[in-house]
Design a binder for these strands. Structure first.
Length: 374
RNA sequence: GGAGGUGUGGCCGAGUGGACAAUGGCAGCAGACUGUAAAUCUGCCGGGCUUCGCCCUACGGAGGUUCGAAUCCUCCCGCCUCCA
């Protein structure tokens, strides 16, 4: 996928930097972890610091220091997540700021303009992300409105023709006919990419997978297909098999902050007492900075102590895990072995007594030059 | 020596006659988290059992008053403050 700030190999995972940064991680670290594109959020940036500030400071790339492509979510997810703080009408959404209660009006054309002002690589249309479950009639009515907004947004978008562009968002809840119709409706508007929205709002896993199976094949194969807010590695693998190219999810970052690590041995809750004297790296097969020197016991200690370094290390690890996983998926596609790729175990790791290699901190030479050359 | 205060579950700390196995917080043990109002939230946290309930043992110790005591009285022990 080509964007003004670079090419993105797909399928790709976009780490979530809601406020312009992935929590606890510098742009350099994000780059080093292998991220090729970052997601940010219009609603949150509009509230603070304000779009005008971002624009005046040279746009979102200069402001945040992230040099790669940036996709911004429109605020459509906040229609769901801030359900008690907004009203939706035919013309758009009025939020009451979750920070100070002040009103904030989002219209489909305004949202396009905001994202253009910030200079994002990929802008998302304003959509209405309905709750789950929702009645069929309400889901259909909601889709009609989102479709109308999509048309308005499409007309307002002044593409620069350098890649990236404006993505439409399919809704339709858990209703196959509505989902398929929505995909066709949206495809007719000729967006630069298409997203599947309305998932990861509390629906059962089976529903989520069904939605992907109904929707992804209906979206133009030549354009990027993006499954919003998903998910666990298993969900991503499933969706990639359905032809989805882009993902974003707060899970690796949030779970890291909460002490839950993704590893090739399964999910590891590092705060659990069983890890207090576990000398092994977080994931012996991982090449992230945390795994290079941090034992499970040490991260366990840092987490419990509330040390700031703990969520940072955990986030670096989880992001690396996700990004490595995407690299594996891309390789499998090239090799034609995607269908053989097993889903990752989600069981808890570490039931057994510590075994396998301990973390090795290599002795550091006293000669700085030698250190550098090594 | 005199006067006053205080002692509560691992820790801190509420509770001054029944609604008390005892509010909170911390620590501890688990769980959740999916386009981030999340470094957050939830459950458990004296013991036992047939665990939406019952039975033991418990608010420094012993005794007493009372239908009923962490709460009132007496004595004892520990700690704190002030005065000699």
């Amino acid at each position: 996928m080509t964007t003004p700030h670079g090419v993105v190999e797909t399928p790709a995972f976009m780490p979530v930097g809601t406020l312009g940064a992935v929590k606890g991680v510098t742009p350099q670290e994000l780059e080093a972890a292998g991220a090729s594109i970052m997601l940010s959020n219009l609603y949150h940036l509009a509230l603070r610091p304000g779009i005008d500030i971002v624009e005046r400071l040279g746009g979102i790339h200069a402001f945040t220091g992230w040099r790669g492509p940036i996709l911004t979510d429109s605020g459509g997810f906040q229609v769901w997540s801030l359900g008690g703080l907004r009203t939706v009408d035919a013309g758009g959404v009025t939020f009451r700021s979750h920070l100070d209660g002040s009103p904030l009006r989002f219209t489909p054309e305004g949202v396009v303009r905001f994202q253009e002002q910030m200079g994002v690589d990929i802008a998302m249309v304003l959509d209405e992300c309905p709750p789950w479950p929702v009645e069929p009639a309400a889901a259909a009515a909601s889709w009609e409105r989102t479709l109308a907004w999509a048309g308005t947004a499409r007309a307002a978008w002044q593409g620069r023709g350098e890649g990236g562009g404006l993505f439409g968002i399919v809704q339709g809840s858990s209703y196959p006919d509505l989902r398929r119709r929505a995909a066709a409706d949206l495809a007719a508007l000729d967006f630069d990419g298409y997203a599947i929205g309305g998932v990861s709002v509390g629906e059962p896993e089976a529903d989520r997978r069904a939605v992907v199976e109904w929707t992804a094949p209906e979206l133009p194969a030549a354009k990027p297909r993006y499954l919003m807010g998903v998910g666990y590695p298993e969900d991503i693998l499933h969706a990639v098999r359905q032809g989805v190219d882009l993902f974003d999810c707060v899970l690796p970052a949030r779970n890291a902050r909460h002490g839950v690590l993704f590893t090739r041995q399964g999910v590891l809750k590092i705060k659990n007492a069983r890890y207090k004297d576990d000398r092994r790296p977080l994931d012996p097969e991982c090449g992230c900075p945390a795994c290079a020197r941090t034992s499970r016991a040490f991260l366990h200690h840092l987490m419990r102590a509330g040390e700031l370094t703990a969520p940072v290390l955990a986030t670096l690890h989880n992001l690396r895990f996700y990004l490595d996983f995407m690299a594996d998926l891309r390789q499998s596609i090239q090799l034609g072995t995607l269908t053989e790729m097993a889903s990752l175990a989600c069981r808890t790791a570490g039931e057994d007594a510590p075994e396998g290699p301990d973390v090795r901190v290599h002795p550091v030479s006293s000669d700085p030059l030698e250190q550098r050359s090594s």
